[in-house]
Amino acid sequence: MTPQTKCIKSLFSFFVFCLAFTFSYPALAQKKPTTLLNVSYDPTRELYQDFNAAFAKYWKEKTGESVTINQSHGGSSKQARAVIDGLQADVVTLALAYDIDAIAEQAKLLPPDWQKRLPHNSAPYTSTLAFLVRKNNPKKIKDWDDLIKPGVSIITPNPKTSGVARWNYLAGWGYALKNNNGDEQKAKEFITKLFKNVPVLDSGARGATTTFVERGIGDVLINWENELLLIKKLNPENYEIIVPSLSILAEPTVALIDKVVDKHHTRTVAQAYLEYLYSEEGQEIAARNFYRAHSPAIVAKYAAQFPQINLFTIDDVFGGWQKAQKIHFSDGGVFDQIYLQK
């Protein structure tokens, strides 16, 4: 073997070694910490900041595994649209079941019966709608009827993009139906008058809060009870919460996005994340953030925080979300008719 050949062989051996290292490199790379993406609706920022920290601690203690939960917030329907269009949500925690139905139906990312997979129809906490008025209630607003008076300016988001806006709309409709012996036409007239008093349509609940609180627009804000309690907590002197005589039981729902968790290999931790919402700690975090819990112990502990309200359910009055969506919020539906008239 000539010196030149030896040199070539040595160089080639080195090269083969380097190539072997190259291919084994990905396997040698350190395992990345697990990351979840929770795609949620507008006013849950504070709730999930608290909850995510608690869950990460719980999971680390239970499994030794670090988990980071990223949050995304926006109008509930806009968020559902983003997931349908490819946003890689491991879990969704949206304002209403219909938005998750849309993900199941249009993108087939989870089964149609997703709501049966967790207790309480996959709604780990509930809420309702109420009114927020400025100090001393200058327009003397006490109930739904006061909202349709001339000169009252109402802030509520756009039902085409926002979950709470649809709850607001349906709560008002339900109230009008009850007060008019179930007359749908009268209810429609009521809602038409109500939306005539809405000067700005934000895309989500938090945007509506900004309009009312920071921009100083409007006489009354209709929003999630939890959102109003938070505003009141931060500005106790400037606002008053008005509880209407009748409102709707709002059930924000949560779900695992099967195809995404399987792709990310995060099913176990994502499932545990959602189940932890039903734990005593999860329920207390919800109540601390002004959501109504299911746990009897937590309900009792936070009873003073939540006023008694007469509530009806969407199934009672509208026959469920699918039907309500089709009649009121689909393109060309009742909302389009009344808002385009405006």
């Binding site: 000067p199 700005v200 349509l201 934000d202 945007g207 921009r215």
Partner: peptide
């Protein structure tokens, strides 16, 4: 109020 509404609508249009 009208002026504030105009400003807010402008903000929302920008967003």
């Amino acid at each position: 109020q009208k002026e504030r509404i105009l400003e807010r609508k402008w903000e929302l249009a920008q967003e």
